[in-house]
Write a protein that binds this DNA or RNA. Structure first.
Lengths: 240, 240
DNA sequence: AATGTATAGTTGTCTATACCAATTTTCTAA
DNA sequence: TTAGAAAATTGGTATAGACAACTATACATT
């Protein structure tokens, strides 16, 4: 169960072990987990190490502690189901709008500081820079610039860029996308952006930045998108 | 600076001490904080205790660690998980920010066409209209107008509106929130909104509209919120 | 019946120490 | 002068033990 010789930290092993039990349903909402001392004794590790594992799950919201009583499985996480890991194409299709894409530029450039940070590579490393205009039923909906680390991707034929980048990454490169994190904030359209999107300069737009990861948190893509505010709404459905 | 005799935990004293320095601007984004060993020696406490303080601030997103380099003050923007079915209060607490709420108005009005559509009731039916200013550590963060169908809710005491509406619905009314759907779009602050949020008129803001449902898709709440764009960043993590 | 008390078990806080891994800095030899 | 080696520094993981704060329970006292 716990392998002390493994290079994987003990606390992490325990953490994932507990997580699995919760996700499998062996431990349900409200169930107590074994006490810290109990687990420490059982796996022959120190209590502080157990605490480190439990702490992380508490921070993730999977467990709740109660002084003097014990630690319990938290209420089911209230999370995203619908807004899955889809890109623009899938998103549009779901709305019944025909997605389109117009390639603006395709280059290999040196990574800027910002890009290198998001992709976890060195500043100056080669990256693909792909600028595209995303269309919905033929109209410009978003201006998107993607960066992909060259060293993690052998080659990108320009043809493939017309469709979904995700499909390309998964199907052609055989890489499995694991997770993505994105931020959203309101902004104004710059001259370039307003020109691309055929809107007035200074119009309200949504600035979306997303980093996509493979297994082991290896970044594979960093995207900065400008969505026009008058035509595109972000929809999220949340379910208990 | 650190009082070992105080009933307030040492790690908490240090944590708040660092937090204050960051919020005061003594420590700016990107600045390194003293190393763990350094602080341990300076305050004559153990390194593990220092780590406990630092850990909490890292979890809050105020600090970032870098092995071999040090611990640094993080970029400051507040990030809000997009996909969780939590209200404003819960969100703020999770960030370690004290949520506040200022009741602007509380009325029973006739539902407009738009409101009635969202709540699946007839136009002109009675609805509660609750306008609130949501505060984070005392500062205005969002201006929010909620609509709840009167016929599905027996009564709302004004006192309860100060805190979480969700808690009120679930705990006091015994109704279980099942799902919610929300849209996000960029906009400009109107005169009223900019006044409420103490920002310039025309500043970029995020318009969030959410409808919350009980079981069987019975709408129980329709909310229109204006989040200030300079202090908020919506964040969504997506996982396969 | 209500209240107090003792106890065992739980998490919370804290110390002191040790070694590992990543990075930066300093020194050294070519 | 410079490239590489070595040392110093930093956060990461882990141990063992101690006492405090809190909860639930059982039992005794009033």
């Amino acid at each position: 169960m716990i392998n002390k010789e493994s290079p994987i930290p003990i606390y992490y092993q325990l953490q994932e072990h507990l997580k699995t039990k919760i996700e499998n349903g062996e431990l349900k909402s409200g169930d107590p987990i074994p006490s810290e001392r109990e687990m420490a004794e059982k796996y022959e590790i120190s209590r502080m190490t157990v605490r480190q594992a439990v702490n992380n799950l508490v921070n993730e919201g999977l467990l709740t502690r109660s002084k003097g009583r014990g630690t319990f499985v938290a209420d089911k996480k209230i999370e995203q189901p619908l807004m899955k890991l889809t890109g623009f194409s899938e998103d549009m299709k779901r709305r019944g709008i025909e997605p389109g894409s117009k390639l603006i530029s395709f280059d290999v450039i040196k990574a800027s500081k910002k890009v290198s940070k998001h992709l976890n590579i060195n500043e100056g490393d080669s990256v693909y820079q792909i600028s595209r205009l995303r269309l919905g039923d033929g109209d410009p909906m978003a201006y998107e610039v993607s960066y992909l680390p060259e060293k993690r991707i052998t080659k990108i034929p320009e043809d493939n860029i017309r469709g979904s980048l995700y499909s390309f990454i998964e199907e052609c490169l055989g890489l499995k996308i694991e997770r993505a994190i994105q931020t959203l904030e309101p902004s104004f359209a710059t001259a370039l952006e307003s020109d691309m999107l055929t809107i007035e300069k200074g119009s309200p737009v949504l600035l979306l930045e997303r980093t996509t990861f493979l297994h082991d948190d290896v970044p594979i893509e960093y995207v900065k998108s400008i969505y026009r505010g008058d035509r595109y709404k972000f929809i999220a459905e949340m379910r208990r």
